[in-house]
Design a protein around this nucleic acid. Structure first.
Length: 279
DNA sequence: ATGTCGAAATCGTTTCGA
């Protein structure tokens, strides 16, 4: 089962590129962030004509998340509300469209657009840390459901120095501060594994290149788009790839897709199902 | 040179967010 995440920086501007990529890669599930469109204007029919199910949660101009899936999308949950105690849900922060979760092929998929945070110490930075604290409680509540868990999206955090092109200059700044890193580690606990790091431990693998300063031409990137898997999914994953070439498109997003391949349901289960047929 | 994008309002240039 192929599951992908892609911050497209406007689904309407990027639609043709997304359709081309879907046609080429044929993922089972694609999670989008920064769709930047209110729900009434989401181009869902383009996807539906190609046989995909589509769910979206957006707002005008900013943020916005969507699920594109060949499998049925079940038990959709919008925002962090629904897993949080009411007081925290109310605090969960001015109705920004950043979270969409669903049960797809028996996997709980949580699609996230984590706040950017602007600058360390700013109002938006405080918001980011509070939001991550809400997310931690959401994930803790989710974990009690005992579903295989895949949490993915634009985290706007480089967990380690090797996830940044120039750590000596950037470590400690926005997306690489100790507070952000410990907040994300606290969300993950010891239950969730970074799918990319199961297969690759080296630096120089990026998922985002700033539009400014010729970052792409100089390959000055960050790895801030992640896929986290609970144990049974991690144990059955066979690859995790960053589709770097997409950043070379005309009018690209500043982010590229990240894709995990999971043997799911596991072979054992399939064998059991097969045996059942012949009993 | 925080050097570029994308969306929206202030509509054709500026602002905000990233």
């Amino acid at each position: 089962m192929l599951i992908a995440t892609w911050n497209v920086n406007s689904i309407r501007t990027r639609l043709a590129q997304v359709m081309d990529w879907l046609e080429e890669v044929k993922p089972d599930v694609l999670c989008l962030q920064e769709t930047k469109v209110e729900d009434a204007l989401f181009p869902n029919s383009e996807f539906e004509q190609k046989g995909y199910n589509v769910c979206f949660h957006g707002q005008k101009s900013y943020n916005g998340v969507a699920l594109i899936s060949h499998h049925p999308i079940k038990d959709l949950r919008v925002g962090l509300v629904g897993e949080l105690p009411h007081s925290l849900a109310a605090k969960q922060l001015s109705n920004q469209a950043r979270v969409l979760s669903a049960l797809i092929n028996e996997i709980r998929i949580v699609n996230l657009y984590v706040p950017n945070g602007s600058a360390v110490g700013s109002e938006k930075y405080i918001y980011k840390l509070e939001w991550l604290n809400c997310l931690k409680q959401y994930i803790n509540a989710q974990a009690l459901r005992d579903e295989p868990l895949c949490i993915l999206g634009d985290f706007n955090i480089a967990l380690e120095d090797k996830d940044i092109h120039t750590p000596q200059a950037l470590s400690g700044g926005i997306m690489a501060s100790e507070d952000e890193r410990s907040a994300l580690k606290s969300v993950l606990g010891n239950r969730l594994r970074d799918a990319f790091r199961i297969f690759e431990s080296d630096t120089n693998h990026w998922s985002w290149w700033n539009y400014r300063s010729g970052a792409w031409n100089r390959d000055k990137g960050w790895r801030i788009d992640h896929i986290y898997l609970s144990e049974e999914l991690a144990n059955n994953s066979s690859s995790c790839e960053i589709h770097k070439q997409v950043r070379g498109n005309l009018q690209p997003s500043d982010h590229v897709p990240v894709l995990v391949d999971i043997n799911w349901p596991p072979e054992d289960d399939q064998d059991d199902a097969l045996e059942d047929l012949f009993i």
